[in-house]
Design a protein around this nucleic acid. Structure first.
Lengths: 203, 203
DNA sequence: CGGTTTCTGGACTTGCGGGTCCATTTTTGC
DNA sequence: GCAAAAATGGACCCGCAAGTCCAGAAACCG
């Protein structure tokens, strides 16, 4: 049933999603009109509603999923290979570099709150993104515990939760203040803290 | 010049701001129509534009300021008295309790991104809030350093930045997932980390 | 090929909600 | 008490952008 898209159709659909995503990143969800998407992607209103029968709602949902996936892809291959301290630092550097580059034009900004309100399903997309993100961090910590680089008594899930929250807050503050300082501080201090109780262990 | 409000006028204005704030907390910025504010506060359109000549823009700005102030007030008197470990824990408990209670109905949700887009000045309000918040935390850390409860070599500003980011992210994740776990993890792990290098001193 | 489906373009409708206006009532200050 | 200023109520306007519709072009498939 989802079948019914020709080659050309699929290409157009993808073009719409990518274009809309870019437009939203640039100017914010509620500043982007369907008309803007049309202009930016060279499509007509008929096409928009052909590919997204639910209108803006559906389009926003597709964009949200697209952006959520991108957030994790941008952290690869580092995020899936947190197997040594240099690897952790490389990941840290990638995050800083990534968010410094995009500055205020953050996909999360569109996802959180804004998209969340409009599209009910967007909430699920955000939750899914956070879950995958945190899981990857947890696995990294577990691996380091298995090699003795992190205290095995540490609650990996809890530590990953705290780190993820720190990152989210750091990005949030980057959006508000324009400074990367918070994100840097969180990453550096948290990673240092993880290194602290290495094989010396204990209370 | 700002003078021109009678007793009654000031009361009405305050009623509008408080009512609009409540409405926005409940249903989100872009779900709240001027009409809703009117119904909820028992006012007419004429009044709204009488007190907020800039229309919705101005009203939103006033609401944002009101909510920003409230966020800090809700943390008092703990936030301004981080002078012992029990005090820190009391502050921690207040935060958890506060956010657990309000759950998804978070003023920040309205402030960040949403209001920020619409009202240019809202950005400044958020920045101001974060600055005041972080300053209070920094002072708490400095005080603990002066009593020897925290390693004096620690960069208080940086640590406060990280903690603030963690809190923001924790709240963000509370909004997304409905779980308080992230916020708890951040507070507990960060405070533990601050306690760690007490008077034993650094490396 | 030729019938069928999908794709594309764009004119048109519609409803919502912010903003304007002014007439009336209440308060203020002398 | 009385003019001036502020407060109130609500009818009206108006633009915008989402959504509808359909006719024609292109692509698919046997």
């Amino acid at each position: 049933m989802t079948r019914a898209l020709t080659r050309k159709g699929e290409a157009t659909r993808a073009r719409i999603v990518a274009g809309a995503a870019a437009e939203i990143r640039e100017r914010g969800v509620d500043e982007v009109r369907l008309e803007d998407v049309m202009a930016h992607t060279g499509t007509s209103k008929g096409q928009l509603f052909h590919y997204f029968p639910d209108g803006k709602e559906g389009l926003l949902l597709a964009v949200a999923q697209h952006e959520a996936d991108q957030v994790l892809i941008d952290q690869e291959p580092m995020l899936s290979n947190l197997t040594s301290w240099p690897a952790w630092l490389a990941w840290r550097d990638r995050l800083i570099e990534r968010y410094l580059a995009q500055g205020v034009k953050c996909p999360l900004n569109g996802l959180l709150g804004q998209t969340g309100r409009r599209a009910p399903g967007a909430q699920a997309i955000v939750t899914g993104l956070m879950w995958r993100w945190q899981t990857a961090i947890t696995e990294g910590i577990r691996h380091m515990q298995s090699t003795g680089d992190i205290d095995p008594d540490l609650d990996a899930d809890r530590a990953a939760a705290a780190l993820l929250a720190g990152i989210q807050g750091g990005v949030l503050l980057l959006l508000s203040t324009g400074k990367i300082d918070h994100l840097e501080a969180v990453l550096d201090l948290t990673i240092d803290s993880l290194r602290a109780g290495a094989r010396t262990g204990g209370s």
